[in-house]
Write a protein that binds this DNA or RNA. Structure first.
Length: 263
DNA sequence: CCAAACCCCTGCATGC
DNA sequence: TGCATGCAGGGGTTTG
């Protein structure tokens, strides 16, 4: 389940391999990935100028368009030769000497082609990136979230973008708060810690190539080793204090908490 | 207006 | 061994 660090690692690999390459043809094999009537074939014979990222969104930059890719649970990008399509490959981009394939076993991911002028509108409900937060921004955003659980708000992409279930647990651990702490019970020091440790945790994960929990896949650029750095998420014992981790549900998600490190 | 429920999907775990 | 059942999960949409 790619979150900000995994998407960033993929972005860097794709940017390196695809910048200045021209898409010759696009084949869509599963329409729901693209959405109704979207003209993804408009990128044919267009050059990829850059690849950017915002939250968990990958942004392929063309002359007149941005192609927005969200991997959701299991989406992956592969670069391959001109070999036959595999079962879970749903979109194939043909270049002069290779192909780029969107692979997604659960078909939850989405690819949208938008006009450049629609960029702001597309992201109008997206919060600041989790590795570049600011205290005043959080202070202001949290005013409308007072009775919500901390973890629910960390996962809310309209408040903070890029955090998923793994890093939400890790951030709660690092700031020493249980995930079901109400926002109104956080003090300024907690907010400073969210800003500081979100950046630290996510940047470190990027450095380690992201977190790879399902090791049977070899997703492009995402054979990361950050799973070795996780302190609570999917752990049996806390890596800080070796106390047995408590498993529960918060915000509808499987949640891991250390009863000693978190209050 | 908000929150909860539902929906999209498949692989895997569980139970019999 | 194999079949049926159910669960996970990001985020958009629908319902209450």
């Amino acid at each position: 389940m790619p979150e900000l660090p995994e998407v960033e690692v993929v972005r860097r690999v794709l940017k390196d391999k695809l910048t200045n390459k021209i898409v010759r043809k696009v084949d869509v094999f599963y329409q729901n990935i693209i959405g109704d009537g979207e003209l993804i074939n408009n990128v044919e014979n267009n050059k990829i100028l850059d690849i950017k990222r915002r939250g968990k969104w990958l942004i392929f930059v063309f002359n007149d368009y941005y192609m927005m890719s969200h991997l959701r649970m299991e989406g992956k990008w592969f670069i391959k030769d001109f070999e036959p399509k595999e079962k879970h490959e749903h979109v194939i981009f043909y270049f002069d000497d290779f192909t780029l394939r969107y692979h997604d076993t659960r078909k939850f991911g989405r690819i949208h082609l938008i006009k450049k002028e629609d960029y702001d509108d597309f992201f109008k409900n997206l919060g600041m990136d989790a590795n570049n937060l600011a205290f005043n921004y959080l202070k202001n955003k949290f005013k409308t979230q007072k009775n919500k659980d901390l973890k629910e708000v960390l996962l809310d992409q309209s408040v903070i973008s890029g955090i998923g279930n793994i890093y939400a647990d890790e951030i709660c651990l690092r700031i020493g708060r249980v995930p079901n702490t109400k926002i109104k019970d956080l003090n300024d020091k907690d907010l400073e810690n969210i800003v500081k440790y979100s950046k630290e945790i996510l940047d470190k994960s990027i450095e380690f190539g992201g977190t790879t929990i399902r090791s049977y896949t070899s997703s492009l650029g995402v054979i990361g080793h950050n799973q070795d750095n996780l302190i609570v998420h999917r752990q049996e014992y806390c890596k800080n204090c070796h106390t047995k981790i408590v498993k529960s549900k918060v915000a509808g998600r499987t949640t891991y908490t250390c009863p000693v490190c978190q209050k």
